[in-house]
Write a protein that binds this DNA or RNA. Structure first.
Lengths: 170, 170
DNA sequence: TTGGAATGTCAACAACGCTGACATAAACTA
DNA sequence: TAGTTTATGTCAGCGTTGTTGACATTCCAA
């Protein structure tokens, strides 16, 4: 079923000749690459009994210091209960500080402590090293294509979050 | 720490000017894209109380019918206990068939049943549709770069598995 | 002042990683 | 042939991280 070509028609807007086999290669490439992508941080996290959820929280708090819990929820796409459990451990371990909002005291603004920043740096250094090596192997043009396809693969709300971060970053 | 440039030197082998900010964008793109990449299958799987582990097993059994448990283990990179739990449910639900090996009767060779193939098709159709749309949005040159960077991001053993599958697949 | 938004907490559950221990059958080896 | 290793399965237990549901608190806003 659904063998062979399954891309756009000939007279159409695309020059791509997309067989199911080619698409499947892309799917498998995503799977294997994501394994590699997370393996270095995973090793570090396992040593201190943390998981990927801790890494993600630390990453985005570092990315946007003072972000609210609700904002973080929409970026991570998990439930508040799930995030709350992770934040509680990070706060009690002294890696994250939670400050009550000034204009709206219901909100909690999140910051990394010095210790939190140290872990963030340790984690992102390994991940950047892998990304840098991959970029170098693949070359500059490949990197453009890489980002283009990834952005097109995101859900609409995730793409919005991604682009917000890109604008606010740097 | 580690601010600004952190790429290759000037006189070096690379023309890439890689700031930490650019690398972080790539990292975040991977995270958001992988969310989208898994979201369609996740919805289908949730309806039948399955998870990603079931999907992965089904995918690779379909990819290489008759594969052994050990071979599947090395592809998936999990423990036999973890895979065994998933396989047991798939077998008892009638989606996977396990046949004792002929030359080596210790081995179990895995196959999808008709029902298993139906679920595989349902899952991969949604994922291929997203991949096809992303490829179309990004364009043909982008797809080459996408695959090139992903391959460079894999661990060595995963890259070997990936290329084995590429060779054996059509 | 009442309703709703933001947050936190408690409880329970499921998926899916992990380790350790043990059983079995087949295959290799000395 | 006897002993070891390999491949697989099973059971038990644990930890992370996702989920829902229920409920309390605080505070803004109509």
């Amino acid at each position: 079923m659904a063998e062979g070509r399954s891309g756009q028609g000939f007279g159409g807007e695309s020059l791509l000749f997309l067989t199911d086999e080619q698409l499947r290669q892309g799917i498998e490439a995503m799977f294997f690459a994501y394994s590699g992508f997370t393996s270095d941080p995973d090793r570090i996290l396992a040593e201190i009994s943390y998981g990927r959820a801790h890494h993600r929280a630390i990453h985005f708090i570092n990315r946007a210091p003072g972000t609210t819990v609700n904002n973080l929820l929409s970026i991570l796409g998990v439930t508040k209960q799930s995030l709350n459990r992770v934040l509680r451990t990070l706060i009690s371990d002294g890696l994250v500080e939670s400050r009550v909002g000034i204009s709206d005291k219901r909100e909690r603004h999140l910051f990394l402590t010095t210790e939190g920043k140290a872990l963030e740096a340790k984690l992102s250094n390994t991940q950047r090293a892998r990304m840098r090596a991959a970029y170098k192997d693949a070359g500059p043009e490949a990197v453009q294509g890489f980002k283009k396809v990834l952005e097109a693969m995101m859900d609409a709300d995730m793409r919005r979050a991604y682009n917000n971060l890109r604008e606010n970053g740097q």
